[in-house]
Structures are given as C-alpha cells and as structure tokens.
Amino acid sequence: MKLRKTAAVAIAVLALTATACGGESGTAGDKPKDPTGGKEAPKLPTYTVAKDVKIDSPALKKAQKAGKITFGAKNDQPYLGFEDTDGKRSGFDIEIAKMVAADLGFSADQITFKTVDSGVRETTISKGDIDLYVGTYTINDERKKQVGFAGPYFMAGADLLVRKDEKAITGADSLKGKKVCSIVGSTPLQEIKKPKYGAETVELSKYSECVQQLINNEVDAVTTDDAILKGYAAQRPTKLKVLGKPFTKEPYGIGMSKGDKALRDAVSDALEAHIKNGDYKKAYDATLGLSGSEFTEPPALERY
C-alpha cells in the first residue's frame, strides 16, 4: 500500500510539472524599472548585413559554410549580456556581437548564442567550441597566451558593489578583513587577492550568485567591473549601490581563436566602422546607458 502511495504521489508531481505548459506570457518577475524617468527609451540600432565577405580565416569559412556563427556570451548580466525567461538575449555585449556579425555577413538570426561562464572561457574559445566571445572579457597578457583579442571596445574598471546602508567600505583601500565575493577566473579577483587589500575572498561561478550572497549579508562586497555592477544595482535600487571608484582598468575585447589574425583584423575593422557611424553610441544608450552609466568614448583599438 505504502509503495503504491509513494508511486502515486511521485507520478502526480511529475504529471503536474509535465503538463505545466501554458501560463502567462511575458517576462517573469518585476517589470524593468524605467530609469529615464518617463522619457522615451532609446531605440536599438539596426545593422546592415555585409554581402560576399571574403576573409582568410578558417573559423569564419566554417561558419559561412554552416550558415551560422556561434558567439559565447554571459546570460546573467543585466544591460550587458542577459537572458530572460523566454530565452531572449539582450544587452550591450549582445549588440556588439550583432554589429560585428553583420559586418562578417551574418544577420541577427544567423547568430547562435551559447552561455559560457567565466571559468571555462579560455577552454571553449581555444578549443573552438565557439567562434567569437563577447562577455565582459578583459584583455590581458596572460589570456593573450591562450586566445586572440579584437578591441578593446569598452573600458571598464573594477569597482565595488555594496549594500545600500554600507558605511564602512568607501573604496578598495577599506576592505581589510571584509569578505569580498567574485568569480573564479576573473581579473578583479586576482587584483583583490593581493595582500595589500587584506580582504577575504569568496569565489563562486556566477556574479549573480555573489550578488545574492551580498543581499543575504554573507559577504560585504562584490567586486568586478563597474559596468556589470551598475546593472545589478539598477536591478535592485533599494538594496544595492556601486561605490563608483574604479581601482583597475579592464579593457573589454572580443575573444577568438589565438592564431586567427585575419578574423581578428576583420572584427577590429567592424568595431571601428560601427564606432564611427554612431551605431556604437546608439547601442550603448539603449542598453548600458539605462543602468545609469554615462557614455564615454571607447578606447583606441589595439591591433596586433
């Protein structure tokens, strides 16, 4: 009897979840707040898809043959790289991906986005699991040994996200003995681990999980690039704030296979063109700009 009951309950729960289709449409959770204060929200730019692109890059040729290009991206960074419950991606990095793809001859629906967490970025890029990577990816020498970078297309800086009522932490120099959360394999984490800060570090695999730890009072601050942090603060304006005192420079690049110079140049060209024709600023205003960061001119491209 008991056995039957267990089985019945188990099957009932399974059936409930299995038939749980339908339901309200639209994004789950709160409606995004409108930080523009009633003004009309800036619109996303549209990009013209280039035709007959001929670039001597093995990765690109393969993508052209397949008729689709694969971008690695983050899925939990509001206004940068975010995926809502309907699977729709949005954010500044996503726009960068679209404009680059357009110049390489791929329309927006020929892009396949794959969520790649920070910890496995180098592996997926260097092994060719994705063609290009846009996900708040800081260019540095250590990484250049493993992957190629086009850009930088944006200059961020490591900053601190704290609770709204935080008084003790005023900047990176007041972190002594505080618990700071960041994610495995990120550059601000390497920085904050240096003994001069004297901070205790907690490493998780996603920034959003760090943010949750901060809200739960489990850690005292979250450190990573200001652009990412501002997105989280804008999502939860009653609970969190960004200090606004960046203490490193984090130039974002587009990651790709290391030896592919032709592709690197083509991506750099695409970035340059879109910065010049104003698409870049439009994309910024319609994404990152909404989190309250001022527009700044992009840094000069580094070609190598």
């Binding site: 999980e209 730890q213 739960n216 009072n217 489990e218």
Partner: peptide
Amino acid sequence: AWFVVPAVFGTGM
C-alpha cells in the same frame, strides 16, 4: 546551503 540556510539561520558561515 548557500542560498536558503543563511536566510533561515543567519549569516556568517
């Protein structure tokens, strides 16, 4: 342990 326990039994683990 990371997200529910602190909400119930307080923080600091």
